[in-house]
């Protein structure tokens, strides 16, 4: 469970990133956060594992306040939160397996990881994670030899290797084509359902949000302007979140049609 209590983020230049956010995200939910770029989606997501610090308020993950945590305690909480990035953030020269294994470092002492040693159980966990995203056979390839969609699945496997309770995905499909977008979203959904991992995804395609989410949160200028199940997230509601009618390029279907692909 993730709780946001009166969360405010103000940048040093005075800009408000998040304005008094109060949210409770339950276990096993698949939450999609929508909003224009600059609305604070990424800031909200990155405040959960404290890649961004908040100015006031508190964020509690599984009963532990990450806002107050520091040092080892903070790293322990982060270990339980997997993260997936728009640009994959893999070490391109390293093998796929090596990248996935790097998700295990939080479980080991500095000394044993210093020489890059992982016990056999970790190799099994990493290979199992790769099987879950259907790229087990790529384990020994270099990460940069894989396509964008495959690289994103490796990064999902890396998050899974952490054995997380929560997965955060910051625009996970923004640099993928429509077809691989589906595969990656399907993977995330399957993992959410099978492993009951709470999943929070930032998306800018509203049709994808409707299709995969169990709950949609709309952000506008750092404030929650919509929070409800998919059935309530009508076109009119989206127009409200965006402050204007929906554009063609906010629909994956429209993007796909442009590229001549049907999805």
């Amino acid at each position: 469970m993730i709780e946001f209590k009166n969360v405010v983020k103000q940048y040093p230049n005075g800009t408000i990133g998040l304005n008094n956010i109060n949210l409770t995200i339950g276990e096993g939910e698949f939450v999609v956060i929508v909003g224009l770029s600059g609305a604070g989606k990424s800031t909200l997501l990155r405040s959960v594992n404290r890649l961004h610090d908040i100015s006031s308020g508190e964020i509690v993950v599984d009963g532990k306040s990450i806002t107050k945590a520091s040092g080892k305690q903070l790293r322990r909480i982060r270990r339980d939160i997997g993260m997936i990035f728009q640009s994959f953030n893999l070490v391109k020269r390293a093998t796929v397996l090596r990248n996935v294994l790097s998700g295990r470092v939080g479980y080991h002492s500095t000394f044993s990881t210093m020489f890059g040693y992982f016990p056999k159980e970790d190799h099994d966990i990493a290979l199992d994670a790769l099987s879950r995203v259907n790229i087990r056979e790529k384990a020994y390839s270099r990460a940069d030899q894989l396509s964008g969609g495959q690289q994103q699945r490796v990064s999902i496997a890396r998050a899974l290797a952490q054995k997380p309770k929560v997965i955060l995905a910051d625009e996970p499909v923004a640099s993928l084509d429509p077809l691989t977008t589906r595969q990656v979203m399907d993977d995330l959904q399957r993992i959410n359902r099978e492993l009951k991992i709470t999943t929070i995804v930032n998306l800018h395609f509203i049709d994808l949000a409707r299709e995969y989410a169990t709950r949609i949160i709309g952000l506008r200028a750092g404030e929650v302007v919509f929070d409800g199940p998919v059935s309530e997230a009508t076109d009119a509601k989206f127009a409200e979140i965006y402050g204007r009618p929906i554009n063609e390029d906010e629909l994956l279907a429209a993007e796909a049609a442009k590229g001549g692909v049907t999805v």
Binding site: L51, R78, F85, N89, V91, V105, M114, Q162
Partner: peptide
């Protein structure tokens, strides 16, 4: 070097030395 993997290592709960071993060294070694 690409800051992405460093961010990913921080997010996964790595400490400074683990961040160097898994994020910095593989990128800078060649």
């Amino acid at each position: 070097i690409d800051p992405g993997p460093l961010e990913a290592m921080t997010a996964s709960g790595a400490n400074k030395i683990q961040l160097i071993v898994f994020g910095v060294i593989p990128q800078a070694l060649p």
